[in-house]
Nucleic acid binder design. Structure first.
Lengths: 151, 151
DNA sequence: CACGCATTCCCACTTTTTCCCACCGAACTG
DNA sequence: CAGTTCGGTGGGAAAAAGTGGGAATGCGTG
């Protein structure tokens, strides 16, 4: 599983050096093959090892094509899903369109999230985090799944 | 399967270079033969490898002819279906009538959607995408298939 | 039958992408 | 404290992909 927040840099060609502690696991899990796509809610990218992604894609594709909500989700997620591969120096190349979507500049944050990574522009990540901390969770109605959550 | 968003250009003759990463798969799947037709809901084109299309056409033809909705779907989709073929440089020629339907100008987006592609005018794609992102999905009634979806 | 328009095929140029190597800095080790 | 190794970074060269134009072929028309 992937954990932790890493400050990473995108060079002028859009390449990103995957932190070494993840490399071995990525190679053994998917032979270095990854899929990047956009996040539906936030301006960040989601990066999955290929096998993990294929499960998700299968679920998405089974959704009814004529349903507008499902269609929207398919277009965003499958429509932006791009194959990436670790190069000989353990870097991945983020294509321009995805870079634009997530407003990625030179410094970014790579966040481990279990079966995937999230890639955020550094400034946006910091701002968002501050926002999340400000929200008073107790004032909200928690969905039932969270009521019983024990951390 | 086809995924990802590709910026493509239609030249003055209406030709579109299929991104190379898809070409091999298209050739082995259907010997380079594709079908383009119109989308029911949006001003974009749908492009299927021939065998995939034949399945779709079969499903459409099985729909009850007396149902007006089904009839409309048949007329739109089967009625606009056009044979395309990859030429020696991996390009397809989009016929003028379909170009008009999807208001395609010089720059377009080719979106992989599993068993098919969608072809959008670039500006329309960008606008639509922004619209989709603005919608707060949680506020909508999600179809039951989506409720439990974990990405 | 001849002419003109439209389509198709093919070639060549330009730009982009990919691959590879070399350098720099930091950290660890002897 | 110096030497060595490893991770990160940048750039350059080779390869591939995209783009446009021109010639040839086919079709419809006058």
């Amino acid at each position: 599983m992937f954990r932790g927040a890493n400050k990473v840099t995108l060079d002028s060609k859009g390449r990103l050096a995957m932190p070494t502690r993840y490399r071995e696991r990525i190679v053994e899990r998917s032979n270095g093959r990854l899929i990047a796509t956009v996040d539906r809610a936030d301006r960040c990218l989601l990066i999955y090892p290929l096998p993990e992604w294929e499960e998700i894609e299968l679920k998405l594709r089974r959704l009814p094509t004529l349903n507008p909500v499902a269609r929207r989700l398919q277009r965003l997620m499958i429509g932006h899903a791009t194959d990436l591969e670790l190069d000989s120096s353990g870097r991945i190349l983020i294509p321009p369109s995805l870079r634009e979507y997530a407003t990625l500049s030179r410094t970014a944050m790579l966040i481990g999230q279990g079966n995937r990574f999230e890639l955020w522009d550094e400034a946006l990540w910091n701002d968002s985090r501050e926002q999340w901390l400000k929200v008073d969770e107790t004032a909200e109605d928690l969905p039932p799944e969270l009521e019983s959550l024990s951390l």
